[in-house]
Structures are given as C-alpha cells and as structure tokens.
Design a protein around this nucleic acid. Structure first.
Lengths: 238, 238
DNA sequence: AGGTGTGAACACTTTCACAGCA
DNA sequence: TGCTGTGAAAGTGTTCACACCT
C-alpha cells in the first residue's frame, strides 16, 4: 500500500493510516515513472539489468533522481549491477495501476475527440475507449469502429453498464463543466480534460488538464527577451 | 527585463545581468499566468478591477498565490480595491510575449497534426500555423486552408522564408528527433512535442512535451488503491 | 473595512556524497 | 570496482500573517 501525495497548485493528497509499506510518491515521481517505463520497454531484451545511470540518460533525468524515485517504493536494485529490467517494468506497472485495462469514455466527437479516438496509442497502452458521447444530433447514432456515438443524456446508463473508469473531455469549454458533472455523478473518478477551462470536481475525483495553448504560451514566454546566455536545459514539461 | 527561471526535471534557466527590474518567474508562475489571463479575459467589462481573491477563485488557486505571482513582476494593484483588470491583462500579455503573433510550423500532417491544425484556438490566441511538413509523398503538395504541405527536405528553406518561431512535432516517435534536429538547425528555438519520446536539443532551445498517455497513467495511478479518505483537491496538472 | 505586498515559515523536491553490499 | 540506498544539504515553491495603504 502506498501513500500518494500530489503537491503544487490545487493538487490531491492521500493518507493511508496503517499499512505495511507506507511511503510517499510525488506527482513528479509518477511522471518520471511513466518515462522510465517507456525507456525500459524500449530496451527490454537488450539487457537483463539497467543501472540508474543508463536509465537516467534514456529518460532524461539524473542517476540520483532515478535512485530516489525507485527507492520510494522499496528497493530491489542490485549493488554493483543495477536494476533487473523486467522486474522493474513489472513493479512500475504495478505501482501505477497499469496491470489491468482502463475503460474510458470519450466526451465530444469533434476534431479533438476524433483525433484522440483514432490515436492508437491509448489502446495500445491499456486505455480502451469504449463509449463516445456527443451532443450534436447529427453525430449521435454514428458508429466509430464499433463504438456508437451516444447522446449525453445516456451518460448515467452507459457509464454504469460499460463500467467506465475514466472520462476524456473533448467538448467546447462552455460545455465542459456540465459534461464532467454528468460523468462524475455517474461514478467516474478520473477525468482528462482537454477543454481550456478549470473544472470543479468533488475532492475524490482527479482531473488532469491538457492545455495546448498554455504550452505554446510557455514557449512564447521562454523565447521572449531570451538574450545572451542560456545554461543547462534539455526538455521541458511533458 | 525579467529573469526567467524554470526548475524541476531538466528545465531551463536564464539570467539577465544588469537590468532595471531583475526578478524570477518560475515555471509554475508562468502556467498560472496563462490561467489568470483566460480568467481575466472572460470577465473583462464586468468590472474594472479584480481582487486577488476573485482571481484566485476563477483561476483555481489561492489569493496569496495570486498576489505572490503578480508581485513577481512589479506590483500595481490598488490596496483596498484590487488590480485594474485591463491593465493586468496587458501586463501579463506583455510579460508572456503575447503581444505579437507567433509563427508556427506543424511537422506531421497525420491524425494529430490535422486535429491540431483544425483546432482554431491556436490561431485565435496568436499562434499561426504558417507551414506544414509531412514525409508522406501522398500528402506533400496538398493544400490545407491555404497552407501547402511540404516535404521535410524543405525545412531549412521554408523556416527561414516564413520566419518560423515555433515548431509543433506531431510525427511518429521514431521520426521526432530527426524532425526536431532539422528545425533547430534552421533556427527554431521553441518546440511543442506531441511525440511520446524525450527529445534532445541544444541548451538554447526549449521543448515542451505534451504526452497524453502519461496524463492517463497519472490518473490510473491516482485511482489505484484509492481507498478511504481524500482531503482537499480540485484540479490537477495543466 | 477591504485588499495589496512581502518577509518569514513551511513544505517539497532535487542534488550531494558516501556508507555499504555484490 | 561498480552501483545502490539514503541521510543530509541545497534549492524551490507555497502558505502564513501582518504591516501598510485607500
């Protein structure tokens, strides 16, 4: 059992009272775990172990950081050798809850929605879009690759029947809050929000925002008045 | 003139030697500035001033945070009243470099690329996609809304001619590094990367990653073993 | 009152450096 | 020797609390 603590802006916090392994995994660690996982998967087979040094290079961080991150959920690296690759993969998948597929509902079958739906990587990584909703009656009833687009009025029923875990919000900003309210009422506790609006949810629901304009603005800021020097840097965000 | 300091993972850092107002603006502050800007724009006209309290509520943070953020670039709020709305908008736009349009090249005219291109919000917010590249010879030569899809071989020439500031990478992971190398060689110093790969760039180039699978994995992590309690929370990420 | 600006306290996160195991 | 695991130090970001203006 693990403690999951997210910090910064308005982020989540959890406490696990009395449990065997009680530790903290910060949000930044979780993001890095995703990177580690992808780096490890790319090199599985190449070698049976991997050192913090190598993993750091492939994931874009430092060796000390890798060790700290991995030690936060109990250590099993072998001194002098490194970490057993496959075991590490399994362990990370386990920690992150990626050992079972997640059932996802897509809200909004417009440009972003359809791009997301066609973007095969979700499925490949265990996130199955098994329901689609759109308020446009022109679209309702169409079938995308076996999944019928439904009217948002059916959210309660479909979310329950399809045992939806997560919702992806790809509707216009004005409709986002309303759609989130509906899926949350229906029991969804994780939301990936593409609408450029902060969304309010009860404390037991997690919202993850993806805001592409904000990322571009971050770049604009960086490049503005960017004179002279510029020390270490490699990749930002993600 | 402002100091721009980005921390955490591998992030950028800048120093401005001798300037009038020499301060630091952290990455988290910049992200919040984007939120403030949107919140302010939504309510311009409603009222000539806005308090840190109100702005915090609309942007999803705390009043103290808002005051700290705004004070980091010189203060001009009026005690007892709040901040002058329009002036604050102008000031933030100025700080972030949003007073002029940014010229963007899109690399990859596939699913994600086309969704991004059609996604009007970029243009509306001052990011104009004025060049498109794709390695698929089937696509090269087609014209999207006035912009011709070019072969990546033309990157050097087009980036210079079109005075491209930023590149959006929407190609498959394997091709990402190569495309980034090409635009960086051509002079681009800001990259928004949608490919699920860490990209290496020289220290004077900024990369911002958008990785949707990673966001979903963050949700999966949050929801796994999410028992019992769950204190304050509202929105995550972004 | 109402609300800003800000040092000081607090809370994290990252980096260092080194003991200790294979 | 090589590399992990981890306290301790350094560095950042957030929250508090209050002086001070209008």
């Amino acid at each position: 059992m693990l403690v999951k603590t997210f910090t910064s802006v308005p982020r989540s916090t959890r406490r696990y009272p009395e449990t065997a392994v009680s530790r903290k995994i910060s949000e930044s660690t979780v993001r890095r775990l995703s990177h580690y996982l992808r780096a490890l998967e790319r090199r599985v087979g190449d070698s049976t172990t991997i050192s913090s040094q190598q993993l750091a290079r492939e994931a874009g961080t430092t060796a000390a950081q890798v060790r700290k991150d991995l030690s936060s959920f109990g250590s099993f690296g072998k001194r002098g050798l490194g970490y057993p690759t496959q075991e590490l993969i399994d362990r990370i998948r386990d920690i992150m809850g990626l050992t079972r597929p997640w059932r996802v509902a897509l809200l909004g079958a417009g440009r972003i929605g359809s791009a997301l739906y066609e973007y095969g990587d979700f499925r490949a990584r265990g996130f199955d879009i098994v329901a689609i909703f759109d308020a446009d009656s022109e679209k309702v009833g169409r079938v995308w690759d076996g999944v019928e687009i439904r009217d948002p009025a059916a959210i309660a029923e479909v979310v329950e029947r399809e045992r939806i875990d997560l919702a992806v919000i790809a509707v216009p900003a004005e409709a986002a809050q309303e759609m989130v309210d509906a899926v949350v009422r229906a029991g969804v506790r994780g939301v990936l929000n593409f609408a450029p609006r902060r969304i309010r949810v009860p404390t037991d629901v997690t919202v993850q925002d993806v805001n592409m304009v904000m990322e571009l603005e971050g770049l604009a800021f960086q490049l503005t008045d960017a004179d002279l020097d510029a020390p270490q840097r490699e990749a930002t965000g993600s």
